[in-house]
């Protein structure tokens, strides 16, 4: 009896792994850039409706797994608003699982978000911004970014893959 009820539950748990979604607001983004974290902060703005954004998510997932967490602070920020969490974002992430958490921007227009990001943005997605530990913007991509692009920036800044 115990076995029969336990097994299906275990299987379900495996396939229905709940994606990690954190809500984030403009203030929290601003704070995260002013915390003087060690290493680099990568902010990627994306949406589920944006095919090039979706295509590059896996690259960020790989970066998250390959590099030490204390040196690469990755924020994959979905801009579609908190109302999409259950109906859109969760099913999307179940279908396209990621090893890293995803952040959902509560609300904020491109004009509001560019203020906290300290740079002008066009609003055309995807957008990737890379900041140093002092919160200074090092690179801005208003286009798709490859895993190689990210890796070379990390290397330039003395950040190497984990030894394992």
């Amino acid at each position: 009896m115990i076995i029969t009820t336990y097994l299906p539950f275990a299987e379900e748990k495996q396939s229905e792994k709940k994606p990690i979604i954190y809500n984030i607001n403009l203030k929290q983004i601003e704070t995260s850039l002013s915390e003087n974290k060690q290493g680099l902060t990568i902010i990627n703005l994306w949406a589920t409706w944006c095919p090039p954004c979706v295509a590059e998510l896996a690259h960020f997932g790989n970066i998250y797994e390959k590099y030490p967490k204390e040196k690469v602070h990755l924020y994959l920020i979905n801009i579609e608003g908190k109302e999409i969490k259950e109906k859109v974002l969760e099913p999307f992430l179940k279908k396209n699982p990621l090893p890293c958490p995803v952040y959902l921007l509560d609300e904020g227009s491109p004009e509001e978000i560019e203020k906290v990001l300290k740079t002008e943005i066009s609003g055309a997605l995807p957008i990737t911004l890379i900041y140093n530990s002092g919160g200074r913007l090092l690179k801005k991509f208003e286009e798709s970014i490859s895993e190689k692009d990210i890796q070379s920036i990390l290397k330039e800044n003395g950040i190497n893959e984990k030894d394992i």
């Binding site: 801009i79 227009s109 491109p110 004009e111 066009s122 609003g123 055309a124 997605l125 208003e142 286009e143």
Partner: peptide
């Protein structure tokens, strides 16, 4: 003048 999310040309 406004800005919006969208796709790059």
């Amino acid at each position: 003048e406004t800005k919006a999310w969208g796709c790059t040309i």
